[in-house]
């Protein structure tokens, strides 16, 4: 303590105190706030009653008390647990604005709460179920087949490496950098917003695993060529070659052809000599009439 006290007036003490305060706040924040659903969920202990209560408290204002839909939001009867899981775990629901495209944002619900609501919706209308952990496991998946399916059905919206892409009228297909395997699976299964539905009948659960494995491996693998430049193709390459390549080379060309200057110390000496000799004769021009 005395050690700290003896140095309390040093300039660095202020910075140290600030840093300590930031660290403390960060730790408190991390401990006290809830984070969204992360791991593959288990279907045990879903409490339908809890889910119904949560639904009526949060979702029914747009979706109706019986989830029958209103003019603001569609009916959720038949939407299934998978749709609920996807929309809520990615934070898209509760929607922040009616009618707009919903973007991924942090969710304020816990994993358990989401599962409960999902179980409730499943119970009132059925629909696609949340996949089991085994169903979204990427172990032993055929990424070659996944690459074929991805490029034929997904890449045209999401980009060849899942970097996202534009759709019409201001919508866009999001990047796939943050989606968990379960979220990818449920998205394929339920076709959220503008995304088409890829039911198990055409893309089997095994094929879905292959696609998920392909996506996960693509986004985690290193870029052996250096920085990825966004993985959007030649657009960024063109920007780099003009701004980076040509720009830097033009500066170097200016250096190569710049006129030679006297070294600064030689110039200084010359100026000093010039100043001495000009001291007597240089002020002759004051008369200007």
């Amino acid at each position: 303590m005395g050690w700290i006290n003896a140095r309390r007036r040093r300039p660095v003490a202020g910075y140290a105190a600030l840093l300590l305060g930031l660290v403390v706040v960060a730790l408190l924040y991390g401990a006290l706030t809830r984070t969204g659903a992360q791991a593959a969920p288990t279907t045990a202990q879903q409490n339908i009653a809890n889910g119904q209560a949560l639904f009526q408290a949060t979702c029914s204002s747009c979706h109706g008390l019986e989830a029958q839909g209103t003019d603001q939001a569609p009916s959720l009867i038949g939407a299934g647990a998978a749709a609920v899981y996807f929309q809520m775990s990615t934070g898209r629901m509760p929607a922040k604005e009616v009618g707009a495209e919903n973007e991924r944002k942090p969710t304020t619900f816990t994993e358990q709460e989401i599962l409960d609501i999902a179980a409730y919706i499943q119970s009132i209308g059925g629909g696609p179920q949340i996949p089991t952990p085994a169903q979204v496991s990427t172990a032993g998946a055929d990424t070659a087949l996944g690459s074929q399916l991805f490029s034929a059905n997904c890449a045209q919206c999401h980009g060849f490496a899942g970097a996202g892409g534009a759709l019409t009228y201001g919508k866009d297909a999001p990047a796939m950098t943050q989606a968990t395997p379960t979220q990818i699976y449920t998205a394929m299964l339920t076709g959220p917003e503008a995304m088409p539905v890829f039911s198990d009948g055409v893309i089997s659960p095994q094929a879905k695993r292959d696609i998920i494995a392909y996506i996960v491996q693509t986004r985690t693998e290193a870029n052996p060529g250096g920085l990825s430049l966004g993985r959007t193709g030649p657009i960024t390459e063109g920007l780099v070659i003009f701004l980076g390549g040509m720009g830097v080379l033009v500066l170097i060309a200016m250096w190569i052809t710049a006129k030679r200057r006297e070294p600064w110390d030689v110039a200084q000496q010359e100026n000093a000599r010039a100043g001495q000799s000009a001291g007597t004769s240089g002020t002759s021009g004051t008369e200007h009439r």
Binding site: A152, N153, G191, P196, V197, F198, S199, G201, V202, I203
Partner: peptide, 12 residues
Amino acid sequence: PAQFSAPGGMIT
């Protein structure tokens, strides 16, 4: 058709 019954579906 039964396998491809989910409305909004698309496949290559």
